[in-house]
C-alpha cells in the first residue's frame, strides 16, 4: 500500500508531484517540507509579502466541504507565491446540478489550472483526482473524509519543532475523536515517521478505530493517565453530531472525562504545549484558561499553516517545472 501511494505522489527522482497523504513519505521528505517552510516564515513579516516562485501558475481551491481556516491559508499561501487563485464553492454550484466530480475536474482542466487544492467529504477523493488529472497537474489534499489532512499534520509538526527543537524523545498525546479524524491519522503517521518516542491516543472506545494499535499508537481511556509526562498535547475537535448515533452521551460528560483543564494539564511535562486544529469548542475539548493560556500554541499553528502550505505548493510546482525542462 505504501509503495503504491509513493508512486502516485512522487516522481521517479522522489520529488513531490502531489501531496495526498503522509503515508509512504520518508523522514527526509517531511524534514525537507519543514525546512522549506522555515524559509518562508519571514515572508509574512515583510512589507511586500510575496515571492515570485509560482508566478503565472493557477491554483484552484476545490472545496466540496466548507472550511474557513484551511481554505484561506491555502489561498494566502498561493498568493504569497505569486500564483493566481481560483476559489470554487463547489457544494453550491456544480454537484447540486448533478455534475460528476470527473466533469468538474475536466472543465477546470480546460482552464489550464496547474494545481487543485481539494477538500471533500469522501475518503480517497484526493487520490481519485490525482489519478484522473492530466499529467503535470498537482493535487493538494486539503482533507478527504476520515482519511488524511497532510498539510494540517505538517503545520502541527512545524509547530512542534519550533517549540521542541527535535522530535526524538518526545511523547505526544492526541485526545478525542480519533475514529472520524483525518487530522489524527495524518498526525500519527507524521509523528512516527519523524521519530517521536511515543504517540498516545486518549478517547473512549466509541471514538477509536477498531484496531487503533495498528496505527502505531498506545491507547488510553483515561486522560489523567494518558497525559502524564507528555511533551505535546493535541486536542481534536468534537463534532456536535457525535452525540447522535450513540457515540457519546453528552458534551457535559465528555468534558468531565476528556476535557483539558489547567489542573489536568499540570500532570503533563512542565514544558508541555497544547495544540488544537480548530475551531475550538470551549468548554467541550478544553476550557478557556487552557485555550488562552501560556502553554497554548493554537494561534501559532494557524500562522505557521501559511508557511507550510507555501512550502508544499512551491515544492510541487518546482517538480512540475523540472519535469517541463526535463
Amino acid at each position: 500500500m505504501s509503495q503504491a501511494s509513493q508512486n502516485l505522489q512522487l516522481d521517479k527522482q522522489g520529488r513531490l508531484l502531489h501531496f495526498l497523504t503522509i503515508d509512504g513519505l520518508q523522514r527526509e521528505m517531511l524534514t525537507e517540507i519543514l525546512d522549506t517552510a522555515e524559509g518562508f516564515t519571514g515572508v509574512s513579516e515583510r512589507t511586500v509579502k510575496k515571492v515570485p516562485l509560482c508566478r503565472g501558475k493557477i491554483v484552484a481551491n476545490l472545496f466540496f466541504e466548507t472550511s474557513t481556516r484551511t481554505r484561506t491559508t491555502f489561498e494566502l499561501a498561493a498568493k504569497r507565491l505569486s500564483a493566481d487563485v481560483l476559489n470554487l464553492n463547489i457544494s453550491a454550484s456544480a454537484t447540486s446540478k448533478g455534475e460528476t466530480l470527473l466533469d468538474t475536474l475536466r472543465n477546470l482542466e480546460a482552464m489550464h489550472v496547474d494545481m487543485f487544492v481539494v477538500r471533500h467529504a469522501s475518503s480517497g477523493t484526493a487520490h481519485f483526482i490525482a489519478q484522473h488529472a492530466d499529467p503535470g497537474v498537482g493535487v493538494m489534499n486539503a482533507g478527504d473524509g476520515r482519511h488524511a489532512h497532510p498539510t494540517q499534520a505538517m503545520l502541527d509538526m512545524f509547530t512542534i519543532r519550533r517549540h521542541k527543537g527535535d522530535f526524538v524523545g518526545l511523547r505526544v498525546a492526541i485526545v478525542g475523536d480519533i475514529l472520524h479524524s483525518r487530522v489524527a491519522r495524518s498526525q500519527i503517521l507524521a509523528l512516527n515517521t519523524l521519530g517521536v518516542t511515543e504517540v498516545r491516543v486518549i478517547a473512549p472506545q466509541t471514538l477509536l478505530p477498531a484496531d487503533a494499535r495498528s496505527l502505531g499508537v498506545h491507547v488510553y481511556h483515561d486522560l489523567d493517565e494518558g497525559i502524564r509526562d507528555v511533551d505535546v498535547i493535541i486536542m481534536l475537535r468534537l463534532q456536535k453530531e457525535r452525540m447522535r448515533g450513540a457515540l457519546l452521551p453528552s458534551e457535559h460528560e465528555y468534558f468531565r472525562l476528556f476535557g483539558l483543564t489547567e489542573e489536568r494539564l499540570a500532570k503533563a511535562d512542565s514544558g508541555a504545549i497544547v495544540m488544537h486544529p480548530g475551531p475550538i469548542n470551549r468548554g467541550v475539548e478544553m476550557d478557556s484558561q487552557v485555550a488562552d493560556g501560556s502553554k497554548s500554541v493554537i494561534l501559532q499553528q494557524v500562522s505557521y499553516g501559511i508557511a507550510v502550505r507555501m512550502a508544499v505548493i512551491s515544492m510541487v510546482i518546482g517538480s512540475q517545472n523540472l519535469q517541463l525542462q526535463g
Partner: peptide, 15 residues
C-alpha cells in the same frame, strides 16, 4: 471491512 485497511484509509467500516 472494519479493520486495519479501513482504519488506515479512513473508510467507514462494516464489522
Amino acid at each position: 471491512h472494519e479493520g486495519r485497511v479501513a482504519d488506515r484509509l479512513g473508510l467507514p467500516g462494516i464489522p
